[in-house]
Every structure is written in C-alpha cells, then in structure tokens.
Amino acid sequence: MTRLSKIEGVAAPLPIANLDTDQIIPKQFLRRIDKAGLADGILYDMRFDSNGDKRGDFVLNQPAYADSKILVAGQNFGCGSSREHAVWGLLEFGIKAVIAPSFGEIFYSNAMNNNLLLVALEENAVEAILRDVINPQYSQICIDIEAMTVRSHSQSASFSLSERHRRMFLEGLDMIGATLSMEDQIRAFAQAHWQHKPWLKDIAATTRKRLV
C-alpha cells in the first residue's frame, strides 16, 4: 500500500446530502471482475447527460476543478450499497480524500481499506470550507494526516482518525497477513465455538449437500 502523510490539491464542492454509492458509481459499471476502468463511471449521471455528453454545469467538468483531488460533500456521503467499486473508482478518478459531516458506514470501512481518506468535520466547519472552495481561486486544501488537520483558504480544522486507521495511512498495513498470523487462535476459537454450538459447523456445506 502507498504511504501517505499529506494530501494537497484542488477541492471540489459537492454539497449534496445522502449522496449514495449508486450515484457515485452506477450499476452499469459494476459488471467487470477486475478494478479497471471504474473512473469512467464516477458520478456518471452528474457528469454526463443522457446522450453521453459532458454536462458543463457540473463542478468536476469545469476546468478549474478538473484536477480535483478532494471532494467537499454533504452528510451521509457514500450511504447505501456496499459496492467497494465506489472507492476504487474515486481513487482511479484522482480523488484522494473526501471531507463531509458524516459518511455511510460500509463506505467508511471500504475507504479506509483502500487509503481513500475520509475526513469527518462538524457540519458548520464543512460549510465554511465549502464557502472557500466554491470560489476556484480559493479551492486549494491541504490535509495533514500525521497532524490530523485540514487547511483551506480561510479555515483550519482538526479531525480525528482511529489509531488503527492513522497507521494504515502512514505505515501501510497488510491486514490479512496480520490476521493470518493469528490463524491458530482462529482455528482454536472455531473448535471451541462448535463444541458449544455444533449446529453451526460447516453449515453452508451440509445445507448444500441436503439441497440436491
């Protein structure tokens, strides 16, 4: 995993509440078995009209915001479907961080597992940053992950990140590898668990055998 300590760049205002993952990446972009080409689908219906032409009025289509690295969004960003394609697509699109008052829970974990930084700030702090970045002249934002601070043209704010997530960004972490170092413990746990609850052992396999 790439190690990150600072994210700096243009931030695009996207002040829409409950912007769900269906809108972040619509269904027609979920048909592949790899992660390639997902950037094409990011916010597709907002970026393109029904003829497939770019919508000039959409913020990410405006030259000043074309190279945005950060989104400043509304509450409950990424709610809805668990599709991790939303995170992969945003990263491929060039987005490295999203600032919002709150995030959908599954989206939050997905983002953290892929080093897409999510910064949750109080609603009025997000609104103040929005007032800056809505002006293309003041659209630069700097996020310091080590210090856990956000700086826009006129604002600065602190955010929190769990120690685990902060380490994931700063040091990178092979989560599966770390868990697999506890494999014996997991196996022992399962054996003890099944001793008390034998009806759970191989539940999927035994059911499949029954349903022939």
Binding site: S82, R83, E84, V87, I106, S109, N110, N113, N114, S162, R164, M175, I176, T179, L180, E183, I186, A190
Partner: peptide, 20 residues
C-alpha cells in the same frame, strides 16, 4: 451486516473480520 470487497477477501482468508 454488509461488508466491502476488501473485507470479503479478509473473511475468505481468515473467516474473521477486523470489526469496529
């Protein structure tokens, strides 16, 4: 509860989840 694809991989390999 629902999980993402990175977590699906974690569960396949370990039958566990790092759970907040």
């Amino acid at each position: 509860f629902g999980i993402g694809t990175s977590e699906v991989e974690h569960v396949l390999a370990t039958q566990t989840l790092v759970y907040r």
